[in-house]
Design a protein around this nucleic acid. Structure first.
Lengths: 194, 194
DNA sequence: GTTCTACTAGAACGGTCGTTATACTACGGA
DNA sequence: TCCGTAGTATAACGACCGTTCTAGTAGAAC
């Protein structure tokens, strides 16, 4: 067996990890570059060498979050073969994230969109990619679940999904995840194979 | 007839107006106190005399937004006597706000909750009040519309409402307001009086 | 006329921001 | 051995942050 030698993460990865923790919990504008560098245990010049500046570090942070969410969604979807359950699985992924994270601050992409008002900021494109992917993936899943209009049903579910994220953040309603699963299920055709 | 002499708004009101425009469009953390003072055409010392500091100015800004929203909701609700239409009216108010505002940045209360991570910040209480009022008002309206479980139906609508706000901000789906009205209507009992 | 209040203009405080520059170290490959 | 790469530590830059302070002005109340 090979030794499980930890490859000790590169300076770039350590920066990305530190940025992820700080930007998400404290906010992007409220987090200074020095705090990221200190938490990563890395020299300031390395940050500029790797990312060129804060803006592109923020964009890279959101890209990384996007990749993790896509993986989490797919993992949740893969737990079942029932086409209707596979649609609802995005809320299982959301529940896992909500329960795991030390501090829940909603969707990192939405938070960034609120904080960043400059349309030219490189993070904006990353946010759009993340949300577009979710809508497209839900369209596939609702089609496989037999929806008459998969695009429309997927759009409905996107609204419920975003509302659930906000409801979790602000604790607006009791049991938002149960609620979201029920609302979503009601949008899908009933299983009439039997 | 009395002369319509404009009472020229007080320094406090001018500060609140300027703060509302700048905090909403540029974000709270990204807006300096100097910019607010300059736009209001007011001395810096007046801001501190009236509000004591930025934190309480932010809280006052959110309170003012809360009052305006409550008035907008009631105005939209009052346009009809149909109990089911009265529930859906919150989306008419949202549509009006979305179309009127020069720059739509979502819900000011949610934006503030994203930007402010300190739970002791005086704005947090204002945000909670705003959202609690919406849920309670929707509970009354769904009860009047004949919902079997008004609290639960109202909570469902809150989720749809918050999701619609995010969908508008990020342009996630086509026709989010039509969508929200349809989803909400489906949650209410059908009119079976005839 | 004096006093009180609300307001103005402007400077200064210490602190943090994102960014750039300087100088040094460790190491792998040619 | 030399060179390029990737990293380190530290200092400095100009700009802006929220806050406090000083000093002066206009008007109403008494």
């Amino acid at each position: 067996m090979t030794l499980d030698q930890q490859p000790l993460p590169s300076a770039r990865d350590r920066l990305l990890t530190a940025a992820g923790e700080l930007f998400y919990v404290r906010g992007i504008n409220a987090t200074g570059i020095d705090a990221v560098v200190e938490r990563a245990g890395v020299a300031l010049a390395t940050l500029y060498k790797q990312f060129g500046g804060k803006d592109r570090l923020v964009a890279a942070y959101l890209e990384e979050r996007d990749h993790r969410w896509r993986a989490d969604w797919e993992a949740a979807i893969a737990t079942t073969t029932d086409p209707r359950q596979r649609v609802v699985a995005i809320f299982d992924a959301l529940e896992r994230w909500w329960g795991t994270e030390g501090c829940y601050r909603g969707c990192a992409q939405v938070d960034a969109a609120v904080e960043i008002t400059d349309a030219e900021h490189p993070a904006i494109a990353a946010i759009t990619r993340h949300k577009t992917h979710l809508r497209q993936r839900l369209t596939e899943l609702t089609r496989e679940a037999g929806a008459a209009e998969p695009e429309q049903t997927a759009a409905d579910i996107v609204v419920i999904y975003e509302g659930t994220i906000t409801a979790l953040l602000l604790q607006l309603v009791p049991e938002p995840l149960q609620r979201a699963r029920r609302l979503t299920t009601e949008l899908l055709p009933t299983d009439n194979r039997r």
